[in-house]
Computed example of a mutant assay.
Amino acid sequence: MSRSSLSRTVEILSDARYVQAESPRWDGRDGTLAWIDMASGAFHRGRIEQGRVIPETSVLVGAQIGAPVPLAAAGAGWAVAVDQGLVHVSDDGVVSPLATDVARAGDYMNDGGADPFGRFWVGSQAMPRDPHCSLWSFDSRGGPTERLSGVTVSNGLSFDRSGSTLYYIDTLPHRSIEAFDVAPDGTLSNRRTVCRVDGGNPDGMTIDHEGMLWVAVWDAAEVRRYSPEGTLVETIALPATRPTAVALVDRLLVITTASVGLAQPTDADGALLGVEVEVGGSPALPWAGSPPPAVAARPATVGEVTR
């Protein structure tokens, strides 16, 4: 039996409201928070201070932005899935290509994250919805390997501590959390269903120190905590209808939300939300790649930092 959210207090963390905030990431290098707005193609970074998210920088990355992951070294920037490939975003806003034309034309990169071995895993989606998309892993040189085909809407993914199990969400059509065994070279096997997610669409996901899976459930106004065996452990009701993704900043569960498509959005729709939980999580795992060679000047029309 799941535990209700009666003892939880959900706070609005951000002054800003986003059309489709996604992919929150706790940066272990400096303690900052990163997130994106899919509707604007912007990559945001800020600090959490006294229960509020204080924005610091915003970079326009591309038309169809997906998930960001930090590089390992302080000051080395971020790898960001965007359009049909990956780019590098430096701390001063320079946007440089890492991998291009990976996804097929008309598709675009969506959610993703790194594994404990430094590979960046990211999947694609398409409009209209059709099961021809893929899940890739990118090595430290930015080389892609297709790990899974027949994907419709690649969304949340998390690895267990050892990296030997991948938990994964292809939101449509099955609305389920799945699991795979992961070989040392990244090969996936033993695909199985952990559980079906009813009442909404499972979206972004993170894993806590107990190996439990926190999942944002779009159109259900909930985040849910599931065991690795698929037992629903807890449900937290939210003041926002469309939660998109989650991250644990130690014991603060940060939830991104969307206002897109809502006829009468509430004050919480499109905000960053937060709720304290008992079991924390770790910072986002880094990609093992290196920044591209320094460029002479910032691109005039792509990367732009605002502070």
Rank of each mutant, 00 (worst) to 15 (best):
A263E: 15
V80E: 00
P144R: 02
L232V: 03
A221H: 03
P97R: 08
V246H: 04
N155M: 10
A263S: 15
G85T: 00
R251N: 15
T266G: 15
I177D: 04
T257Y: 08
S14H: 07
S140K: 14
S137V: 01
A183E: 11
E278N: 06
A296T: 02
L285Q: 14
D27H: 06
A42S: 08
R25P: 06
R17M: 03
P131S: 01
N201R: 10
I65V: 14
E278Y: 01
V87L: 09
P291A: 07
G28A: 13
R104V: 15
W35H: 15
T241P: 00
R25C: 14
M38F: 05
D27R: 07
P116S: 00
P283Q: 04
T241W: 03
Q84N: 11
R161K: 14
V182I: 13
V10N: 04
V61A: 10
A183G: 04
P291S: 06
V260T: 14
S14R: 06
G200Y: 05
S7K: 06
G199D: 08
G93F: 11
D15S: 12
E222S: 13
T301A: 12
S140R: 15
A114H: 09
S96D: 03
R104T: 15
V102A: 00
L98K: 11
S164T: 13
